Amino acid sequence: MLSLVMALVIVVLLYNFIEYKESARATAWSGIIDKKISEVIVFADEEIPVDSQFNILVTIKSFRTLFLQRLVDSEKKFSGAAKNKIRNLFKEYNLSDVAIRKLNQKKINLIAQGIRELAVMDQEEAVPMISLFLSHPSHQVYQEAQYAMVRLKGFDGLHFLDTFSSKISEWQQLQLLLSISSLPVDSDITIERWMGSANDSVVIFTLKLIKKFQLLSFYSKITELFNTSSDEIKVKGIQTLMSLDNPETVAYLSTIYKDQPEEVRIEILRVIKVSKDNSCTGLLKHELLEGNTSGIKVNAAQGLYSLGHQGYLSELARREDLSEELIQIVKYALQEKVC
């Protein structure tokens, strides 16, 4: 029994010693790599002396893996010429093989990491390999592949949306939008196709794309969404229409109001409040008195307050024939304390 305990102690000590050595080595290597990166960024090529130690280390597989990791981390901190020099280091030492090897691994995190590294280092020649992961069962992998495609190819990298059936998360939509800096001249055909997608998240992303680039030509296409689309798409459609700054939008929304479900009606009331369009006063008064839910009434009251009808609301607050709930809603809109 004692010998078994001693053996376990020795194993633990050996493990800790190995871990310590690896940690110490990684720390030392990180210092060497960071020095190399700093020299490349600060000095011209002809001013950098030959570093024989670095050239030996860079042949070691684990050093190359750490080197690539440090380059990717550094790339985020710089822009312009410095960023280009970091990418040149990547090419000079042929670190693409390190990232590509990760694509052949079974571990999800390594595959995603390899895709990210190739994208960050602008390896457009890796697009065919990365595109194979757009249908990967792991959301971590296919989301990384989506982002990489857009980063490397811009708008053209979004063509996976043509057949994409899974939900695109809000975070992923934001990442994709941030990666699109311009649209090709023939983008309208593609965008219109996405507007008709059976995938709600694709339609919602497309609406955000229209909003970002102020694609006024899609105004009528957006209005068509209110006939058959989901509530979420309709709400996003309202927000997109308002962003396009068409003076007829509020009037249009008031005409379709009665045919919409509650969530969409509430969104219409919210935009009326923000627009301060007095042509909708009648609708707001009707919904305050006759609305079938508290949410509708609250937003109608707030809309009336925003449009400057405090006097009307004050009169309602003094009426004794109205329900206690309605009085409280009106007082809330008037920013009075409800007792």
Score class of each variant (00 low, 15 high):
1 M>H: 02
1 M>R: 00
2 L>P: 01
4 L>S: 01
7 A>Y: 10
10 I>F: 04
12 V>T: 09
17 F>E: 08
23 S>L: 06
24 A>F: 14
25 R>W: 14
25 R>P: 07
33 I>C: 05
35 K>F: 12
38 S>M: 13
42 V>M: 14
44 A>C: 10
45 D>Y: 08
46 E>N: 04
46 E>G: 02
49 P>W: 11
57 L>G: 02
59 T>K: 15
60 I>E: 15
64 R>T: 07
72 V>R: 03
77 K>I: 13
83 K>D: 07
84 N>L: 12
95 L>K: 01
97 D>F: 00
100 I>W: 01
101 R>L: 02
102 K>Y: 02
103 L>F: 00
103 L>D: 00
105 Q>M: 10
109 N>H: 12
114 G>E: 09
118 L>S: 00
122 D>P: 04
124 E>Q: 05
125 E>L: 02
128 P>R: 01
128 P>I: 02
131 S>R: 15
132 L>C: 10
142 Y>V: 04
142 Y>C: 10
146 Q>D: 06
152 L>H: 00
160 F>A: 01
164 F>G: 01
169 S>A: 08
177 L>E: 06
179 S>L: 15
183 L>D: 05
189 I>K: 13
191 I>E: 03
191 I>T: 01
199 N>L: 01
203 V>Y: 05
205 F>D: 05
213 F>M: 02
224 E>A: 12
227 N>F: 14
234 K>G: 05
235 V>M: 03
241 L>N: 10
243 S>G: 09
245 D>T: 11
260 Q>C: 06
263 E>Y: 09
275 S>K: 11
277 D>E: 06
281 T>Q: 06
284 L>Q: 08
284 L>P: 11
287 E>M: 08
299 N>R: 12
300 A>M: 11
304 L>Q: 03
306 S>T: 07
307 L>P: 10
311 G>A: 03
312 Y>Q: 05
320 E>P: 05
323 S>Y: 04
324 E>Q: 14
327 I>Y: 04
334 L>V: 10
334 L>T: 09
335 Q>K: 15
